[in-house]
């Protein structure tokens, strides 16, 4: 016997969570795009999709974030710091790849300094993940040694029941237990069987890829030019990546008054590494693509013992020129054999 949450109790759950002061966020389709957004009623949730177009990182590391405003006068400099609003949130219906991505970025944002914005939101959020029972041809969590029911980054894991009436509840953290204690009365004990997990075939050999990437001889390989020839240098793969975390600072205003903002940046952009002198150490698109792959599968694991990829597949699914990580790592796997 395990605890289950029935689908038709979801509205009552939302009511209780709202009453306890939580915002509830989940996958929503609006304006021809699906993304994690705040909902009032369970009916607004779009839980039947493989995964939302946009990632979970948007909720922790938004595309633009005001940090502080400044006003410089003759006598003094006034600043006002902006911090994210302190709202407790429950994300209901995250995907395992998106939740895992949060656990991948935690050490990064806590490495050389504690990123206040990231950790404030992380500490105020409960992530309730629903294991996947369906995948598409771009899903690749298993290639990253993750799975449709990975628990990394999640506070609660829900496993869909075979009859689609609800979910089996697995409490993973104290934060998750606390949030689910609010709906304890709505949960049931049941022997119901869970549905089969999505079958996600392994697409490349991650260990072989890492070995190849670590070999200094391959840094200047002609492979990089060939594989990235059709790359147009946009930020689609970066900005739809749940783990990509690079940012830029922008002062909006003038010398005397304005706002400093933290904006997403992308290693695919030519401007990303442009020096003030005009020299660009990554002057070609192939050097930029190499950096993206090296960072995710060589440098990041070297530093944090984690791959900077959770296998959601959005980079390949959404690429305007049909590139992405899958093809590149498949080709590297071939080169390594």
């Amino acid at each position: 016997m395990t605890k289950i949450l029935l689908r038709d109790k979801l509205d009552d759950c939302l009511t209780r969570w709202h009453a306890a002061g939580f915002d509830v966020v989940g996958p929503v389709r609006k304006n021809n795009i699906s993304q994690y957004a705040t909902v009032k009623k369970a009916g607004e949730l779009d839980l039947g999709i493989i995964l939302p177009d946009r990632t979970l990182k948007d909720l922790f590391f938004p595309q633009t974030e005001p940090m502080f405003s400044y006003r410089i006068s003759k006598q003094k400099i006034d600043t006002e710091e902006y911090l994210p609003p302190g709202r407790q949130r429950i994300i209901f219906g995250a995907r395992a790849c998106d939740a895992s991505a949060m656990a991948i970025d935690d050490p990064l944002f806590g490495w050389d300094y504690q990123d206040t914005y990231w950790f404030k939101r992380r500490n105020e959020t409960v992530i309730v993940t629903i294991a996947c029972t369906a995948a598409d041809e771009f899903c690749m969590c298993t290639s990253l040694k993750l799975a449709p029911d990975s628990t990394q980054g999640s506070d609660i894991l829900l496993r869909p029941l075979g009859d689609n009436r609800g979910w089996q509840v697995e409490e993973l953290t104290d934060r998750g237990r606390e949030a689910f204690s609010r709906i304890e009365a709505l949960l049931e004990e049941s022997p119901a069987q869970t549905a089969a997990l999505a079958d996600v075939p392994i697409k490349f050999d991650l260990d072989l890829c890492r070995e190849w990437l670590q070999n200094p001889e391959n840094f200047e390989s002609h492979f990089w030019k060939e594989i990235s020839m059709r790359c147009i240098g946009c930020g689609t793969c970066t900005f739809l990546c749940p783990t990509c975390h690079c940012f830029d600072f922008q002062d909006e205003g003038d010398t005397y008054t304005g706002i400093r903002r933290k904006n997403w940046d992308s290693c695919s952009f030519a401007l990303f590494t442009m020096h003030t002198s005009g020299r660009n150490p990554r002057s070609t698109q192939s050097a930029r693509w190499r950096q993206r792959i090296m960072h995710k599968f060589n440098y990041f694991p070297g530093k944090f013992n984690l791959n900077s990829c959770s296998g959601c597949g959005r980079c390949t699914r959404e690429c305007p020129v049909d590139m992405g990580i899958i093809e590149t790592l498949q080709e590297i796997t071939k080169l390594s054999q």
Binding site: N31, I33, Q63, I232, G233, C234, G235, T236, T238, F239, L240, W264, S266, F269, P320, V321
Partner: peptide, 15 residues
Amino acid sequence: AEFEKCIKCYACRQV
């Protein structure tokens, strides 16, 4: 409502 979705990936420009 449409432009609020924009993430400035510049795919429109690059393509």
